Simulated scan of single mutants.
Amino acid sequence: MLHENDAAFILRDICMGEKTFSSDVKEGKIDIYADIDGLFRVNVDKLTQINMQDELMIATRHNNYPVKKGELLAGTRVIPLLIKQEKLNIALKIANGEKLLQVLPYKDYKVGIITTGSEVYNKRIEDTFTPVIIEKLKQYNLEVTHHEIVNDDKEMILNAIENLKNNGVTMIICTGGMSVDPDDVTPSAIKESGANIISYGAPVLPGAMFLIGYFEDDLPIMGLPGCVMYSKSTVFDLLLPRIVAGIKLCKQDLANLGHGGLCLRCPVCTFPHCEFGKGV
């Protein structure tokens, strides 16, 4: 038999991965915190398996949640005052040496933006899209190193993409021309640029017309729908933290967003402290 505090340390060590730290133990309970700004990651399958065991519990924030240094990530608790060693042995076997929780640091991307649209290109209207993107990038300490404005012309867009790549950008964001109208050529240009398209379309509202692909060197390229410009929270806000943390997205990642991917358009937006994008 183990005292609750002794058992709590074992449960803590199962959880604590890179860039995390813990509180002192109190009555069998230990809290775990972020040691850096970054993306919180949880092994949900193993977390569930351990929580299936009687007399043990681990409660966490959602997987893929952007966190700040010092923020609470998880709480662990041993239910009884005394617990059988066997219970902890089962939890250790489930973990199999892998930490359940970690915080991934954000990487230092050099971002290039391509603004598409004849009215902006011909200076008939002001580019109001790029400032929105710049503000969102600032949340992750990213700066735009190159910006090109092009007409609704496939060759111009292709040339702009190639120019950004030649100038050493490590992330490309395209805005404008992302719908299915005949004169919206941004998606076809991205497809012909040599990028491997992961998905054109995402089960998220707002953000259904989102496009993402990768070049051979894993350089991500995104096509952002117009809703990113005027909606407080969109698919871009859900996926940007993962991309900045260096996670290479796949089709399954986007498909998983469907559960919880409906924004309720609250009068006062509280994202990310809401259910948007928090599917299980």
Results as ranks from 00 to 15, higher is better:
Thr130Ser: 14
Asn151Thr: 11
Lys29Val: 15
Arg242Thr: 01
Cys15Lys: 01
Asn51Phe: 11
Ser118Pro: 01
Gly260Arg: 01
Leu11His: 03
Lys26Asn: 13
Arg12Met: 11
Thr186Trp: 05
Pro267Thr: 09
Asp184Met: 02
Glu119Tyr: 07
Val180Ile: 15
Leu88Gln: 08
Pro105Glu: 14
Cys269Ile: 08
Ile161Ser: 05
Glu155Met: 11
Ala34Asn: 05
Lys154His: 10
Tyr33Phe: 15
Cys263Tyr: 06
Tyr109Val: 00
Ile10Leu: 12
Asp181Ser: 13
Ile94Leu: 04
Asp152Gly: 04
Gly112Lys: 00
Phe40His: 02
Leu224Trp: 06
Thr60Phe: 06
Ile125Ser: 02
Phe236Gln: 01
Asn196Phe: 14
Met57Phe: 12
Gly117Lys: 00
Pro220Tyr: 02
Val204Ser: 04
Cys269Asp: 08
Asn256Lys: 12
Asn159Trp: 06
Asn167Phe: 06
Val42Met: 00
Ile134Glu: 15
Gly246Phe: 07
Lys138Trp: 10
Asn163Phe: 12
Val268Leu: 12
Asp31Tyr: 12
Thr115Lys: 03
Glu18Pro: 00
Val169Phe: 05
Lys87Leu: 11
Thr76Ala: 11
Ala74Trp: 00
Lys154Val: 11
Pro187Trp: 07
Tyr65Gln: 09
Leu254Trp: 00
Glu4Ala: 10
Phe40Glu: 03
Val169His: 04
Lys110Cys: 04
Ala95Asn: 07
Leu238Val: 02
